[in-house]
């Protein structure tokens, strides 16, 4: 299978600080690729380079087989790359529909077409099997953390996106809500999207990913198949950058 997103030798420095060194990585449609690594390993920076928030210093980014230059968040979303950031980008005083469509509202004669947006919001949430929201007209401030995360993810996939990047989507959630969000992550991949998941929780990583990329001090220490690895080896990769694991040859 062809990778939808391919990074080759991507480097990034902030002044004298080299944060990413020759990072190479491939992401495939219909799969979940987890990005793990200790605090400060460079995960968020890598994601921000893909999302057009930071420009890379050197290296290549290929999207669907052709070289691309992502220099702004708009470039990224035009390609179909959406990011769900750790701090949720939702307006709590607006309802679910308004948040899902924020910035891309449907209008008729200059007036908001609420009914159409409401229906399509419900449709999207249904395809993602989001079932716990009582009303799409509920204000976001009345939703639980898990429900909010769900809305934030739905917002990212509502626009025919092809690559969805989730930065620690379960960090603040309880057991049941984590379960819910992980289920959603899995379904996104089943729908054919390429999902990149950043997480510090090895159980979550092993539960939902197909591939795992471990970062260590700004480099990719290893790319492994989730089914070939276990908790201990992943932890070892994170802390020392090496482990006795079979490398994932498909990558």
């Amino acid at each position: 299978m062809e990778p939808i997103l391919k990074l080759t030798d991507v480097s990034k420095s902030f002044g004298p600080v080299k944060v990413l060194t020759d990072v190479s990585m491939e992401v495939f449609p219909g799969t979940v690729t987890s990005l793990i690594g200790d605090n400060g390993a460079g995960k968020s920076t890598l994601v921000k380079c893909i999302a057009g928030i930071h420009r890379i210093d050197s290296g290549e980014v290929e999207f669907e087989g052709s070289k691309v230059d992502i220099s702004s968040p708009k470039d990224a979303s035009d390609l179909g790359i959406e990011v769900v950031y750790q701090d949720l980008a939702l307006c709590e005083n607006l309802d679910v529909v308004q948040n899902l469509f924020l910035g891309r509202e449907k209008t008729v004669h200059g007036l908001l077409d609420d009914l159409t947006m409401e229906r399509s919001a419900r449709e999207t949430l249904k395809t993602l099997s989001v079932r716990t929201i009582k009303s799409v007209r509920q204000k976001v401030h009345s939703l639980s953390g898990g429900q909010r995360q769900t809305v934030a993810i739905a917002k990212a996939v509502l626009w025919n996106s092809k690559v969805v990047i989730l930065d620690e989507p379960t960090a603040a959630l309880g057991v049941a809500q984590t379960e819910q969000v992980l289920g959603l992550v899995r379904r996104l991949a089943e729908e054919g999207l390429a999902v990149i998941l950043i997480s510090h929780n090895m159980n979550d990583v092993l539960a939902v990913s197909d591939h795992v990329c471990a970062m260590y001090l700004g480099t990719i220490a290893a790319s492994v198949r989730a089914s070939d690895s276990d908790r201990e080896s992943l932890v070892q990769l994170i802390t020392s950058g090496a482990a006795n694991l079979e490398k994932d040859d498909s990558l």
């Binding site: 968040p73 708009k74 950031y85 949720l88 980008a89 939702l90 307006c91 709590e92 005083n93 607006l94 308004q98 924020l102 910035g103 891309r104 509202e105 209008t107 200059g110 007036l111 908001l112």
Partner: peptide, 28 residues
């Protein structure tokens, strides 16, 4: 009232008033 509750402009006022960063990321 129509301007505030039925147009994009009105909606964006509410959005920016609550969370300007979220509105900015959404393209407002």
């Amino acid at each position: 009232t129509i301007l505030l509750s039925r147009t994009k402009y009105g909606l964006y006022l509410y959005a920016v008033g609550d969370n300007a960063e979220a509105a900015r990321r959404a393209g407002v």
